[in-house]
């Protein structure tokens, strides 16, 4: 469990470096990615499939990214793009093309559909996360500023 948290954090930070995130935000990006991955693992361990787990994980990611962006005065893209990478269906792309080449079309279509489902789930998760009005998050940023 701890290894999963640490590795997902390190991997997300690696992507933060690849996308030239400002150095001061590396750790927060890593944290966001780790939280997304934890939510995903938790959901799948409770028996939901990949797509449903992806919705919850992206929803959590998007909300945290928006909170962080209000608190840190950074565009929310910074946290969202790096965090989402743990959930993007790279596995699906691989197995789809693998089964296609192996001429196992039934598996190929199943994997292909699953890939699209996960991509669609990520879309839904982000959209649900974006639905809350920005003013709430701005308020949160102000409250935070007063405390510090």
């Amino acid at each position: 469990m701890i290894d999963q948290i640490l590795v997902s954090m390190a991997a997300t930070i690696a992507f933060a470096v690849l996308f030239h995130v400002p150095k001061s935000e590396y750790l927060l990006c890593g944290m966001n990615g780790a939280i997304g991955w934890m939510v995903y693992l938790f959901c799948t361990s409770k028996g939901t499939g990949g797509p449903v787990a992806s919705i919850w994980a992206t929803l959590a990611l998007t909300l945290i990214a928006r909170i962080l962006s209000a608190v840190r005065k950074m565009p929310s893209t910074v946290f969202l793009i790096t965090g989402i990478f743990t959930l993007v269906p790279g596995t699906g792309i691989y197995y789809t093309s693998y089964y296609l080449v192996m001429n196992d079309l039934e598996q190929c279509i199943a994997k292909g559909m699953e890939t699209f489902k996960i991509a669609g789930a990520i879309v839904l998760g982000i959209i649900f996360g974006l639905m809350l009005p920005q003013s709430w998050f701005n308020q949160l940023g102000k409250v935070w500023k007063r405390k510090v």
Partner: peptide
């Protein structure tokens, strides 16, 4: 970073 990212995801998956 690209190496670490690849290694990390290999482990996670």
């Amino acid at each position: 970073a690209c190496g670490v990212g690849s290694a990390g995801f290999c482990y996670l998956l």
